[in-house]
Design a protein around this nucleic acid. Structure first.
Lengths: 224, 224
DNA sequence: GCTAAAACCAATTCACGATTGGTTTGGATA
DNA sequence: TATCCAAACCAATCGTGAATTGGTTTTAGC
């Protein structure tokens, strides 16, 4: 009998969805009301709703409600929303997943002048007299690699990622006269990335970028 | 004498900014407090703050407050701008670069229920009676993989990419009763992706996703 | 003429309660 | 025993209204 009851509820729910006048957003009454109006308990109703959800007929979200039709997709890349949901660890995870592949594309598609520009950023970063300026040139280095991928969409995603990273990153660097030490780990890593791109070696570029970001990540953890 | 007073206030403000312990976000006390603690009226203080704002030392916003340091960047990624600059080929290039790494993260981090959900999407896509519904479940499959990465930032970037893809993709598929053929190339490719994720094999998941997207790309070219 | 003080405006934030899907528990029912 | 119902609780979300804050105007005092 148990199946009969549940099947019955599912059928009645389908009928309800087909006939009832639903508001513009396709929202249907809260579970408590719906259960009462169908004369069943919440548990049974929820089982039936779970069935419909598995079929893709409805979708639900805590605090919002139950809706019919397609789940709306965020059409606006609200960076604020991303910033609030994420954290520095996720940011590094995303960079490690994303930027190596950007570097691979850059290695395959960069123009000669872009490679020169990347080299310039690398050198300027090495010579930076303050940490702030180092950070500036490092940012520009990574973005120029994005430009060199010759894919404006990849570049757009990289910019979005960078915006989130800047917003999430803890305390800003002081403008002190302290400069990165000459044996800063990033220097040799940058060189490996740049050389791989200049050699048009996509796999090596991706590997070098991955090593670089993992190194940044481990130093980030040390600083805590 | 008016100038003397204002210059004095500006100077004292600079001293305050240099010495006072400011909170992490660089916010300084509201105008009313600051005016009182400096022993001047709000109007005079505001003139001095306007001077500092013109110099870029501070920035202000109604309802938020007055802050030192750089004004945070505009936090809305303009999807329309990306759409106008890019094209279907770039979209596929970005997908091929990005989604395999998302699949790799998913393989390492997915929960059991998420793997079940991914399997469900795959099956529903195979059984879809129309191309539109196939597309729906295919989209949901790829997004669920993004959720399974357990990285909200990766998911946000994937959503951005998807939004651009939908906006760029050529004409929509009809809702005809025609359904994907049972030997549709995506079916076996989907299976390979899902199995790799279920096996927690990140490299295999990335490879399978890459093969899948390259296959989609080649079929896209054939259709032209 | 300049300043201080107060009042008001609009954007933003904050706190709190209400709502809602998700989950657990205890008891009733067949 | 197995199922269902009722109730309570949890966490995410939404709505509302008070409080805060920069921006502006008005009024009064020196």
């Amino acid at each position: 009998m148990n199946q009969n009851i549940e099947m019955d509820v599912v059928a009645r729910l389908r009928h309800f969805l087909a006939t009832a006048e639903l508001p513009e957003d396709g929202r249907l009454p809260p579970e408590r009301e719906l259960a009462q109006s169908l004369g069943v308990g919440r548990a049974v109703l929820r089982k039936a709703l779970a069935t419909l959800q598995a079929e893709g007929v409805v979708w639900r979200h805590v605090g919002k409600g139950t809706f019919t039709g397609d789940r709306p997709i965020d059409t606006v890349a609200d960076i604020n929303a991303m910033v609030q949901r994420t954290n520095p660890l996720e940011v590094m995870g995303a960079r490690i997943a994303f930027e190596p592949e950007v570097a691979r594309c850059a290695a395959l598609n960069a123009t000669a002048s872009q490679i020169a520009e990347i080299r310039n950023c690398m050198i300027k970063a090495q010579q930076a007299p303050t940490w702030r300026q180092y950070e500036q040139w490092d940012n520009r280095l990574h973005r120029t690699i994005g430009e060199a991928s010759q894919n404006s969409l990849l570049l757009g995603l990289l910019d979005t990622l960078s915006a989130v990273r800047r917003a999430v990153t803890w305390g800003r660097l002081r403008d002190t006269p302290v400069r990165p030490p000459p044996d800063h780990h990033s220097f040799v890593e940058h060189e490996q990335i740049v050389e791989a791109i200049a050699d048009r070696d996509g796999a090596a570029a991706a590997d070098a970028m991955r090593r670089h970001l993992r190194s940044v990540e481990s130093h980030m953890r040390d600083m805590r």
